[in-house]
């Protein structure tokens, strides 16, 4: 799974810490998602989509294999 979280965050000009606070998770979780080490739950993915006002598919890109 790939994602555009880092780009979207940069466009909003917010830090990982600020995004983490907005979403109620740790900064390490945001870092892990951005670097592709952790795939968020559906609930967190929806929260991210809502925060960035995007569809989930615009943030996360499913890659087979």
């Amino acid at each position: 799974m790939e994602n555009n979280l880092r780009v979207l965050r940069a466009m909003k000009n917010i830090t990982q810490d600020q995004l983490a606070q907005e979403l109620g998770v740790t900064r390490q979780t945001i870092h892990a998602v951005e670097s592709g080490k952790y795939n968020p739950s559906l609930e967190l993915a929806f929260k991210m989509a809502e925060y960035f006002e995007k569809a989930i598919e615009e943030i996360f890109v499913y890659k087979k294999g």
């Binding site: 606070q21 998770v25 740790t26």
Partner: peptide
């Protein structure tokens, strides 16, 4: 005051 436990730490 900060989040110390979330879904990633649970995993």
């Amino acid at each position: 005051s900060e989040v110390v436990h979330d879904e990633r730490t649970a995993v």
